[in-house]
Amino acid sequence: MSKETRKEEIIRVAAKLFKEKGYSAVTMRYLAEAMGIKAASLYNHIDSKQAILQHIVLAIAEDFTKGMNTVVASNENSFVKLQKIIELHVNIAVENADGLAALNSDWMHLEGKLSYYLSLRQTYEANFKSIVEKGIIENEIKPVNPEVLMFSMLSTLRSLYLWIPKKDIVDPQALSRDLCQILLTGINK
């Protein structure tokens, strides 16, 4: 494993602080103090707090987009595609719960990149809904309102960042399997 660069460290610590305090409450001075360095030193590695937020949010949004594009392009049926989407969310949440918190809570603070982020999000949700609709048409999924199903699943998946850090060990495969069971086949015996 390669050693973390100073820029990567700044982004990681900032994501944690954004999660704990909220983007608006974290200043570059506060970030520098949390890292034990002078605020001026931060600017040798990153331009601004906004640049940090953009990096965090857009990197994760692009990871979701890349994952969704792979799912959409696959020849799997809709049910399997939904399983793959659950796995995608679990893996991203396990790898970067703090960054996911910033994506979910602070995306609206993106200044010059807000429209780009919203475009990624809208396309992601349109693809998700399309998979659900196709699954309903092909009788793989019960005939329910596709938007309600999508909202229900995404509400659970987008909040994984709240639950995962409270666990000592998270097995992504087991978590994905359990979420697929609950979200896709239900709890009815």
Rank of each mutant, 00 (worst) to 15 (best):
N69E: 08
K134P: 01
R158N: 11
P165Y: 10
V57L: 04
D178A: 08
K134V: 15
V13W: 03
N145L: 10
Q173C: 07
P143V: 11
F128K: 00
I141Q: 01
K113T: 14
M108E: 09
M35F: 12
L118N: 09
A25N: 14
A97I: 03
A97S: 14
A59S: 15
A93K: 01
N77G: 07
G67W: 01
E87H: 00
A126G: 11
Q50S: 13
V26Q: 03
G36V: 07
L103Q: 08
V26G: 00
I187P: 04
K7H: 06
G36L: 07
I52K: 01
M68G: 04
H45T: 05
L154F: 08
V170K: 01
L103I: 14
E4W: 05
K66I: 08
S2I: 12
T123Q: 13
A101K: 00
M1N: 13
S41E: 11
K167S: 12
L162C: 10
K167M: 14
K113I: 09
L118T: 07
R6M: 12
I56E: 01
K167A: 12
S176Q: 02
I56D: 02
L160A: 07
N139H: 15
K21Q: 04
I11Q: 01
N188R: 11
K189A: 11
F128V: 03
A15K: 02
Q50C: 08
L82Y: 01
I11R: 01
D178S: 14
N188Y: 12
A93L: 04
I56M: 03
S105T: 10
G99F: 03
F128P: 00
S119N: 11
F128I: 04
L100M: 09
T65D: 11
T65Y: 08
A14Q: 05
V13E: 06
Q122T: 15
F79V: 02
Q83R: 09
V80C: 01
K166R: 13
A174M: 15
A32E: 13
K21W: 09
L58P: 10
